[in-house]
Design a protein around this nucleic acid. Sequence first.
DNA 1: GTCTATAGACGGATAGAC
DNA 2: GTCTATCCGTCTATAGAC
Lengths: 199, 199
Amino acid sequence: MSETATGHTRGGDTRARIQQVALGLFAEQGYERTSLREIAERLGVTKAALYYHFKSKEDIVFSFTEDYFSEFDEMIAWAREQPPGPASRYAIVERYLDIVERGSEVFRFLERNQATMRGIDGGKHRFEQFRPRFAALIDVMIGPDADLRTRVRATMALLTVNFGWIFFSRDDPDLVPDPLDPAELRAVVLEIANSLANP
Amino acid sequence: MSETATGHTRGGDTRARIQQVALGLFAEQGYERTSLREIAERLGVTKAALYYHFKSKEDIVFSFTEDYFSEFDEMIAWAREQPPGPASRYAIVERYLDIVERGSEVFRFLERNQATMRGIDGGKHRFEQFRPRFAALIDVMIGPDADLRTRVRATMALLTVNFGWIFFSRDDPDLVPDPLDPAELRAVVLEIANSLANP
DNA sequence: GTCTATAGACGGATAGAC
DNA sequence: GTCTATCCGTCTATAGAC
């Protein structure tokens, strides 16, 4: 049974297929509960083959998170250059949504494996890098000396993007009974996030 | 070194101490990355002793989540009896905050171990029970046929309680630089949550 | 690039003495 | 109620053939 999730049997970049399958399983079942054997089986190869492409299990995680974090960093740098004000805050929220949208699977993985990823890599926190970036982005939006109320509002504005997208855009039959229009969701999320960031 | 987090060396209910220590470690390092050996060491006992009080590792989790879920269920039943309207929505948010406040450590654990807890217990989802309850509470607040905008707003109202409390009430030096007044946080969270639930 | 085979460690869980 | 000792399974990772 060497059929893969993406349908092809051979020819595609193996490294990328490993990343895809691993990310999916890590997000669904958890990093620790997913063995390399299981990943290999899904791809129709053996564990040893994985070690040709990645030097460790952690390295697989590192490979698919680094792009995501790079994008995040570029975005923060860009945000710092914007003039303070409501228009910039809206633009930041909108661009943040773009990132979450494109990296939604990575985000789901990070969200669901927080405890596991903390303190991995011997405390260097190579993977628990979401929070500091998130905090930095909030500081850019409201300045370092904003009061608690403003800070919580800004935090919830960004979390509306995260959870609005993750909860409602796909897999959650509990929360979203009917299939739903992505464009409508996007509009709703942006409106609510903006009302929090620009009261 | 048999000193415990709570300070006493002996005499207290061992079962409860196991729960406390396990919950703390599970929340901090993750369920899978915390071994029974480590829990036992912190308590100054051996692994075997834990098996006198709990029949398995999963059983420890079950023991400290069931109270939390019971409280949640009572709260949902109570909410169903309230007359629909803004005042009830506010009351629901307020009572929800009480639960999150008291069970904040359990909540942190669930939040950070989502992927691991999914599909534990062989797919019976004994532990992945937060989402369905969360969804039920939202339905009570806005009714089953509310539009997407109303639904996302209600969702974010409750998440403001969750994250407002978890992010800002303690351990997050990234997000909250200065020590902060719990009463003020409570007021801010309630105000923002209410503005989302009752626009 | 992928395989077989295996090393080496550690985990959860149990038996039975005290 | 807690201990010592141990079983057995699984996992990550590596060595070396093809």
